[in-house]
């Protein structure tokens, strides 16, 4: 009866905005999250792509792959490690009991991962433009931003399927392993072509490799080449990760 007298303050938009803001602040204020996800890609790119690279083509090539690397960090760590940590601390139970859709929390987290990926992408652009002399058509710069942001989705789903299932310590180990494995063996740090043949073949089974190839196609490093195989592989991996995340979600709700 009181609800009829008091004007309702509730708005879904306000709630989601507050949730996104909270997720971003939480991540920003946690150095163990923000330092590796922000600093690693920028420092590594400056080092290997610009300072030691020596020429514009190298700086351009690596701008593409380091952008994917920049998308991997916040997605995998935010969903893999942070979700597992909050679950261990009983916080996710509080959220599930609270009157907010739990999927809203996951969207807020994805939004946060995208903001981090966007910040790093723009920083990489600055280093590439002023440090490496990289010049691209406006539409190409924009396409890279779009691709990097889209890349956060499948890797967030993969992170989620880890974070909802294993305890925080194991989640940290698994996530680090995937993060560095995907980056190095998927050719995001150094071109896969300088690796021995068998490693180049192994890269084909890594999702990071295919997203890296799409980034390279975006900047025209693969002239006259339609990356159909990479698109198909990227979609297949995305569907696989969505399936795994769905299974993990069901596992979380098994008592419900």
């Amino acid at each position: 009866m009181t609800t009829a007298l008091v004007k309702s303050n509730f708005s879904l938009f306000r709630m989601m905005w507050a949730e996104c803001k909270a997720e971003f602040l939480k991540a920003w204020r946690m150095p163990s999250f923000s330092v590796p996800t922000l600093i690693f890609p920028i420092a590594f790119y400056t080092m290997f792509g610009v300072v030691l690279g020596g020429d514009v083509s190298r700086a351009t090539y690596m701008l593409a792959t380091y952008g994917i690397f920049a998308a991997l960090g916040p997605s995998l760590f935010s969903f893999g490690v942070s979700v597992a940590t909050e679950r261990d601390r009983g916080w996710l139970e509080v959220k599930r009991a609270a009157p907010m859709p739990f999927s809203g929390l996951m969207f807020a987290r994805l939004f946060m991962a995208m903001i981090f990926a966007l910040i790093v992408t723009l920083a990489l652009f600055a280093v590439a433009y002023w440090g490496g002399g990289v010049r691209l058509a406006p539409v190409t710069w924009l396409s890279l931003v779009g691709l990097n942001l889209l890349t956060t989705i499948p890797f967030s789903l993969l992170g989620l399927s880890i974070g909802l299932r294993v305890r925080a310590q194991s989640a940290a180990a698994i996530t680090n392993l995937l993060f560095f494995g995907f980056s190095l063996l998927g050719g995001l740090w150094v071109p896969i072509t300088i690796f021995p043949k068998f490693m180049a073949i192994f890269a084909l089974v890594l999702p990071s490799y295919h997203f890296g190839e799409l980034a390279l196609a975006t900047i025209g490093q693969k002239s006259g080449y339609v990356p159909l195989m990479n698109i198909a592989a990227a979609l297949a991996f995305s569907m696989l990760f969505a399936f795994l995340a769905h299974r993990a979600w069901r596992y979380m709700d098994k008592d419900r």
Binding site: T2, N9, F10, A22, P99
Partner: peptide, 13 residues
């Protein structure tokens, strides 16, 4: 910040 966020979940916080 925690309280402000939780208040947005309710109709009459």
């Amino acid at each position: 910040e925690h309280v402000r966020l939780f208040q947005t979940y309710y109709e009459t916080p």
